[in-house]
Amino acid sequence: MPDKKPVTPTGGEEPSNATRRDFIKQTSLLTAVALTPGTVVEAATNNMDEQIAAALEKLPLKMEVNGTPRSLSVEPRSTLLDILREQLDLTGTKKGCDHGQCGACTVHVNGRRVNSCLTLGVMVNGKKVTTIEGLANGEELHPMQEAFLKHDGFQCGYCTPGQIMSAVACIREGHANSEAEIREYMSGNICRCGAYPNIVNAIQEVKAGGQAV
């Protein structure tokens, strides 16, 4: 964590109306001049502070995504989901509710399935992230992807990446031992088209096939 002053004003529980520009101007002109580089002060007073302020608010984020090291600079408030979709253009991971209520954003972080919409990007620093784009081995589909194709485990396809990431985890966790167990452990992924029985069939086939997942 870089040693820097908070650049947001304090405001209790309610969002504050003060802006960063105001804050930087105030702090730079009043108390924090010594702590702030001269260029920032100058830029702030000249209303040119936007990019500098933005840079100040960002933190470094190093993570491995699908085996590739990524080095980014992100706002602490950016979720892993938005970082994947908007900054890394890995749009296979979907936004369905943005509140952990649908599972469309499911990815693996250090091997565990999680909701990326509730995961702050900065908290993934140093970790390994696997998304749907990282599941296949080149042109060769993962057995779960093959099984979803074969059993039509989707219609519109929007929840599918999350379902597949969850399905792979479901088997790895050892929660695919019966139809009832699969249903329960796949209940964190909503499918509005209603492909649930097909999804269960796909998972059962992969489980029974004994392939490495």
Binding site: P6, P9, G11, E14, P15, T79, G100, L120
Partner: peptide, 18 residues
């Protein structure tokens, strides 16, 4: 963060520092 991030997104809570 499963509840806190959710609440922060809704503006129910707005901490200065996590």
């Amino acid at each position: 963060g499963t509840n806190l991030v959710d609440l922060m997104k809704k503006g129910v809570t707005a901490p200065d520092k996590l």
